[in-house]
Amino acid sequence: MSDLITNGRGLSLVPKSDVALGMKDFKSDQEVRWCPGCGDYAILAAVQSFVPELGLKRENMVFVSGIGCSSRFPYYMNTYGFHSIHGRAPAIATGLAASRPDLSVWVITGDGDSLSIGGNHLIHALRRNVNLNILLFNNRIYGLTKGQYSPTSEVGKVTKSTPMGSLDKPFNPVSLALGAEASFVARTIDSDRKHLQSVLRQAAEHRGTSLVEIYQNCNIFNDGAFDQLKDPAQRDEITLRLEHGQPIVSATKAVRRSADGGIEVVARSEVREEEILVHDAHRADPTLAFALSRLDEPAFEHVPIGVFRNVDRPSYDELMAAQLEEATAQRGAGDLDELLLAGDTWRIG
């Protein structure tokens, strides 16, 4: 097991602020217009209060979003921001991050934006390991279009567009990201600011794509979707906290290897301490992380939260820059006149 906590390069190329910044420095002058009680408020506040501690120059932070309720987020951050079009934020952010290694680029997206219309861009950003922090606000519903089921809605979801219940099996965003071999994959909850910020910190410090699924409540169209995880009576029992190097347990449950080669959740009282699976977020092989991501299936009986995977591999901008440097080192910087006259030429007159 590696004891490397993060790859440590995440922020090394982003200029540091000369002055200490605070939460107010990251609030824009725009009025926040989500529905009262929306989980997005909590996430916004958590981000605004957490980013100053990164110590980065505010002008080197960019928030890029697609379309949806969550995608209004950039307007509320006093940084550079780009509210783009439905599903395309990872593509737009890829061009920005690939050409500007000095920026800390954040993509704010929702379950419809990133997993339906933008699913293709998401998986390709993950496989390329573009230097992005993708915050996927998962409320399991379409909010801005007023309540249709989403690609993370549970089967049988009754909505305006599915009066007899939805038919589609939902995506598990963490499983999907791990399947695309994302180098950093985590899950957290809007209501747990401390956990949310600790995950965001690790995501920011990771160079490459960090995918953070944030369970977010839509109190208008899908209220209470994550209540089990918030209810003091059952949350400690349900929640399996993933911490690197620590046994994977909830208050009453533990994860261990099963006889068939997989993993299983058992009562803590029935398992010996040394049998409990110890979490290794830096494991190169993503299959165990994938197995962990399946533990909440089919119903929310036990839900892992935290960093599933955090491995080091070169980010896309680094690889791209290296090729440019290599080409220049081999043949010198480009000279336009020389280029235009390369090959067969002839002179007249």
Binding site: S84, R88, I92, G95, L96, L103, H124
Partner: peptide, 18 residues
């Protein structure tokens, strides 16, 4: 890019970055 849309999207994102 992974598709035509990502091709132009990335170009536009890069343009935003100068």
């Amino acid at each position: 890019a992974e598709d035509e849309i990502a091709g132009v999207g990335a170009a536009l994102g890069a343009a935003f970055g100068g």
